[in-house]
């Protein structure tokens, strides 16, 4: 999936030397690798670029730019600094409980169910949703599209393999989210890993897709895009929300992260809050 950047996305004028060089780095990365970070929140990016500079032994952003533009392999490592991969299964359990209790029963009224997890990272959210769907006998007629720009994260997501030392926390959250069985019914342990049930994998489609440059690819009933929009500036957030609007069926659902909100977006009026505290919205018909 590859598209053209939005011409309408413009950035603020940089003030500091650091920001001027950051601006140039992001332009360079876009021209050379077609990864578009130009409309990411600068305040969040600066720290991560600083960490990349420390890691690659650069004293200036321009120095980092020089390395990155001349070394494709180094760019793929820098991508790990540019994106934040933290995730958990059933992260914010109350959010997943609401999805299970109020949203999935509505989705059950469709003959087939399509869900888009945008910015799926290592897939914890995808496998969590698959489990909830399974427990309501909906997984058999569901497809979950799981997209991200980080190829390494997508590979992990697809494997459904997580370190066993994370499982205790996942299990607690699963139960808090209203899970009806034991999380251990869904994975088998192999050395220090937990390998999730491959049969669920048949209902997942993983794809490289950027909310900054790509377009809508399917009609869906639920978009879950959690803890992604906070890293975008307002214009890019609005672009992503436009894609969700175009993708959702009338009265389709949108779920966001706990620190995200539609309140200050151009699309606020297109959605009705289903649960403001848990950031679950419904597209107005």
């Amino acid at each position: 999936m590859c598209g053209r950047p939005d011409q309408s996305l413009a950035t603020a004028v940089p003030v500091s030397d650091f920001d001027i060089q950051l601006h140039l780095l992001l332009e360079g990365v876009f021209l050379k690798y077609q990864h578009d970070f130009r409309n990411y929140s600068r305040s969040s990016l600066r720290r991560r670029v600083q960490q990349a500079m420390d890691h690659f032994g650069c004293t200036t952003v321009s120095g980092l730019q020089d390395k990155v533009l001349n070394d494709a392999e180094l760019f793929s490592r820098m991508l790990q600094f540019f994106t934040v991969q933290h995730s958990e299964m059933f992260r914010d359990p109350q959010h997943f409980r609401l999805l299970a209790e109020e949203v999935l029963p509505m989705l059950a009224t469709y003959p087939s169910i399509k869900i888009w997890v945008a910015g799926c990272s290592n897939g914890e959210e995808v496998w969590s949703l698959a489990i909830l769907l399974h427990e309501q006998n909906l997984l058999e007629r569901s497809v979950i599209y799981a997209t991200d720009i980080n190829a390494q994260a997508l590979r992990t997501a697809e494997s459904g393999i997580y370190a066993s030392n994370r499982i205790a926390q996942f299990s607690t959250s699963y139960l808090e989210a209203g899970g009806r069985r034991s999380l251990s019914d869904y994975y088998h342990a192999a050395y220090d890993k937990a390998v999730f049930d491959r049969s669920m994998r048949r209902h997942m489609v993983f794809a490289d897709h950027s909310l900054a440059t790509d377009n809508v690819f399917s009609e869906v009933h639920l978009v879950s895009c959690r803890n992604v929009l906070i890293y975008f500036d307002r214009r890019l957030q609005d672009r992503a929300l436009r894609l969700f609007r175009e993708s959702l069926v009338p009265r389709g659902y949108l779920s966001l992260g706990s620190k995200e909100s539609l309140a200050f977006s151009a699309h606020v009026d297109a959605f009705a809050p289903l649960h403001t505290e848990q950031r679950i919205y419904q597209l107005r018909a």
Binding site: A12, V13, S41, S43, R234, K259
Partner: peptide
């Protein structure tokens, strides 16, 4: 987060 003449809040975890 600066935004032309204006600015807005940016949160992250």
């Amino acid at each position: 987060e600066p935004d032309g003449q204006d600015a807005y809040v940016s949160l992250n975890v």
